[in-house]
């Protein structure tokens, strides 16, 4: 690791000021410390944001659950009300890394984590994500990469929470300068869709403060994934379906795929294909077809398509309860 100074921010306002001196926000550190050790980041200062007031709580209100950015993944995974109201989110949190990682890794950190692409993580590879001119995964070893992207970089968004929050139609409250702004999950990642260097839409001095997840009566959700190993492994593909069941029909349904694009992958037409229909395998297959319509099964990535189809089926049918 390069040498850096360290400071604990007392308020979000000062955190974003302190970080401007070539700094990085430090929460759980699971991603950041690895980046520094591998020479991918050389911050002058680490701004510890764990002391920010009000960022460690999960508050359950009538119509939403507000989750502080510093809530650990373990806390979220084990939170009784979150498990009941937002099962997909709790399951997604429980599927992150290992127990030790979940004990320190935070909600904010999981959402803002950087690419795990093995070219990006190689100290000596200067790929397009690091300001170079090419994506080495294109035509290279890309079995863990994206089926969809608008830019040159093929690395997918691997945040478990992003997939769940996308399907749950959540919003993220971000400190931007002296103000806070609220972003939809799609907005939180939209830059990564078009800009190869972006991991998400946030600037270096923008900080996630909390996540707000709407909760409607009778809402259901399910998280399913497949990885090569049973635990402590990155999902090859993950899927979250969320919605309500009214009279046996799906309402307000959204399906998102993870690890297939630089953003959590949602397609309006796919959701529409399920709206007002029963959560059957046949209907799920139609939704999956629309979700995967523009997939580019290049080189080693094509296998993600049948997996995604199967996961959509399992997530949607799981909503039947």
């Amino acid at each position: 690791m390069n040498a850096f100074s360290y400071v604990t921010a007392q308020t979000a306002g000062s955190a974003v000021e302190l970080v401007r001196e070539r700094g990085r926000f430090l929460a759980g550190g699971m991603d950041l410390l690895g980046e520094i050790k591998d020479g991918l980041a050389e911050p002058a200062v680490l701004v510890n944001v764990k002391a920010l007031p009000g960022t460690r709580e999960i508050v359950v209100a009538k119509d939403k659950v507000v989750i502080g950015a510093n809530v650990t993944l373990a806390t979220l995974a084990e939170h009784a009300e979150a498990k009941k109201l937002l099962p997909a989110l709790a399951q997604a949190a429980d599927a992150v890394g290992s127990p030790q990682m979940r004990n320190v890794g935070t909600v904010g950190g999981n959402l803002a984590q950087h690419s795990r692409c093995w070219y990006y993580r190689q100290r000596d590879v200067r790929c397009v994500k690091k300001g170079g001119s090419r994506c080495f995964a294109r035509g290279g070893e890309n079995k863990y990469h994206s089926l969809f992207t608008k830019n040159m970089c093929l690395s997918p968004c691997v945040s478990n929470l992003a997939v769940a929050l996308s399907a749950l139609d959540a919003a993220v409250v971000v400190q931007r300068g002296a103000k806070t702004v609220t972003l939809a999950i799609a907005q939180l990642y939209e830059r990564a869709w078009s800009e190869p260097k972006a991991h998400h839409s946030l600037a270096a001095d923008e900080l996630i403060l909390r996540v707000e997840v709407p909760v409607a009566a009778g809402a259901r959700s399910a998280y399913v994934r497949i990885a090569e190993k049973n635990e402590f492994d990155w999902a090859l593909v993950s899927c979250v379906a969320a919605g309500r069941i009214e009279g046996g029909k799906l309402r307000g349904v959204r399906v998102a795929l993870g690890s297939v694009a630089p953003i959590p992958w949602q397609v309006k037409e796919a959701n529409a294909a399920l709206e007002g229909r029963e959560p059957t395998a046949e209907n799920a297959a139609k939704a999956a077809e629309r979700l995967l319509k523009d997939a580019e099964p290049r080189e080693q990535i094509g296998y993600k398509i049948p997996i995604a189809q199967a996961l959509v089926k399992r997530a949607v049918t799981a909503l039947a309860g």
């Binding site: 308020t11 000062s14 103000k179 972003l183």
Partner: peptide, 14 residues
Amino acid sequence: PGDAAAPSGSEVFL
């Protein structure tokens, strides 16, 4: 963007 509740002072200011 920004249509959520206004930020509370303690988060932004000293």
